[in-house]
């Protein structure tokens, strides 16, 4: 384990603001250990030195005004300095440059949608340009969420009925983890997203809808390497990957265990009972309908909480997802 007392053990330093944040954090760690050492050191020293001392040797000191003034004023000055430092870094965190690329974020139980100026909507996958300021304008469709990118040291609650925003400038292209940090119910810990910072060329490709020259998903990469199909995953593998990137697996397992929703395993062409007592065969049409209009036919024993994915899944993607579910006998 790296030295955890230092910002070196923290998530990657993804931006200049994160670098400033690290300095402040390191100072605070140092200051904490300094005071802890003084307090605990003095305490242990006195206990060791005066343990079971004769009661007649006790010096009944009641107070010492100079000392008390000292340990009132010095911490006051210190915390005021700390406040100013904290505020200066914070100001850089919240004031976005005017030329920032704006991307809209919609949080809902339990996935993230990213809406781009060119009309593209991505789920749980955020593509941003590296080395350019990016501003996220965020709102929620249901309850509170919080958008947290540890490497950028930014976080903001995503609140229904209002817009909040964060900004950052990723120094390097690469993948960055995104968490939901405000408790939002059953699949809160599954509400994850991947942020990919890409270079200028790929950013322009993305905006104009052309194929990127970088592989974004490490899942795709590793699978392609293992099955030897020359870089192209099979339909089932594409489907499996999509259930991850679209956030399906937050609620639907592939191993038969029950999460928020029914498991995929064995569901295809099986008979399922609905909340109204009627029964349907879970064929392609039923599954497709349940993805696009989830509240129409809810399976018995599950709460009607799934959001609609209508318009968020392309026909090719739908085929891949169905092929994947079909493969899970």
């Amino acid at each position: 384990m790296k030295n955890f007392l230092h910002s070196g053990a923290l998530p990657a330093t993804g931006s200049d603001v994160a670098e400033q944040w690290n300095h402040l954090y390191d100072f605070l760690v140092g200051m904490s250990f300094f005071f802890l050492l003084i307090v605990v050191g003095a305490m242990l020293l006195f206990i060791w030195k005066y343990r079971n001392a004769k009661e007649s040797d006790v010096v009944p000191i009641k107070d010492h005004h100079a000392l008390e003034l000292f340990w009132t004023l010095v911490p006051t000055a210190l915390v005021m300095g700390l406040f100013v430092w904290g505020y200066v870094v914070y100001r850089d965190m919240i004031v976005a440059p005017t030329d920032a690329v704006e991307i809209r974020v919609i949080g809902k139980q339990w996935l993230w949608n990213f809406q781009y100026p060119n009309g593209e909507i991505l789920t749980n996958k955020l593509i941003v340009p590296a080395n350019k300021p990016v501003k996220l304008i965020m709102t929620s469709e249901d309850v509170l969420h919080s958008f947290f990118i540890p490497a950028m040291r930014v976080k903001k609650d995503v609140v229904p009925g209002m817009y909040s925003s964060i900004w950052f400038k990723a120094r390097e292209s690469g993948r960055y983890q995104v968490f939901c940090a405000e408790y939002c119910g059953a699949a809160h810990s599954g509400m994850l997203a991947s942020m990919y910072a890409v270079d200028q060329d790929n950013w322009e490709r993305f905006l104009s809808g052309r194929k990127l020259t970088v592989v974004l998903d490490e899942v795709k990469e590793s699978q392609a390497a293992s099955n030897g199909t020359g870089g192209r995953p099979t339909l089932v593998e594409q489907g499996q990957m999509l259930t991850k990137t679209k956030g399906c697996i937050a609620c639907h397992s592939e191993d038969g265990s029950s999460r928020i929703g029914p498991s995929y395993k064995g569901v295809f062409e099986s008979e399922v009972e609905l909340t109204d007592g009627s029964k349907v065969i879970a064929d392609e049409n039923y599954i497709r309908e349940s993805i696009e209009f989830p509240l129409k036919k809810v399976v018995k024993g599950f709460a009607p909480t799934m959001p609609s994915f209508k318009g968020l899944i392309k026909e090719e993607e739908m085929n891949a997802i169905l092929a994947y579910i079909k493969s899970l006998k």
Partner: peptide, 13 residues
Amino acid sequence: MFLATLATDIHLT
């Protein structure tokens, strides 16, 4: 103190 300081709180809260 980490949490009272504005900048550090953002990441840690």
